[in-house]
């Protein structure tokens, strides 16, 4: 899996590409902006073509460690396969899910301002 970090509007965007499974999940957990409890991250899942519960667990676990889980990790552009894994475990209830990364960034930015 390839992890690319960029930023926009003061928000870190972590874009993932490839398969998010037991093999690659630790890599995501180890990514500094994801692991930092104070950084709000937009996780761009557009190029994730497969995700299982290890990948899901990594995202959920990272959110748990954020100050505000629902806004600490904002998800964008997941495909139908990935969405189904979320729905199977009801994990979609924990996250704000956007179909567009720029909209997700706007949302995360307003939430950050609201909190400071």
């Amino acid at each position: 899996m390839i992890i690319t970090e960029t930023s926009a509007n003061g928000i870190v965007i972590v874009a993932l590409e490839g398969r998010l499974d037991a093999l690659s999940a630790p890599k995501l957990r180890g990514s500094p902006p994801v692991a930092d409890p104070k950084t709000a991250v937009v996780l761009d899942l557009e190029k994730v073509d497969f995700m299982d519960s290890s990948g899901l667990g990594a995202i959920v676990g990272a959110a748990r460690e954020k100050g505000d889980p629902a806004c600490g990790i904002v998800l964008s552009c997941m495909n139908n396969k990935v969405r189904r894994t979320f729905e199977t475990t009801n994990a979609q209830r924990l996250f704000h899910i956007f179909d567009d990364t720029s909209a997700a960034v706007d949302f995360a930015a307003t939430r950050q301002i609201a909190r400071t």
Partner: peptide, 20 residues
């Protein structure tokens, strides 16, 4: 079923298998 509200990191696997 995993108690999703407590943000579990593991323990979804068999549940997912049974569900799909």
């Amino acid at each position: 079923a995993p108690d999703i509200e407590s943000y579990p990191e593991n323990g979804y696997g068999l549940w997912i298998i049974r569900k799909v």
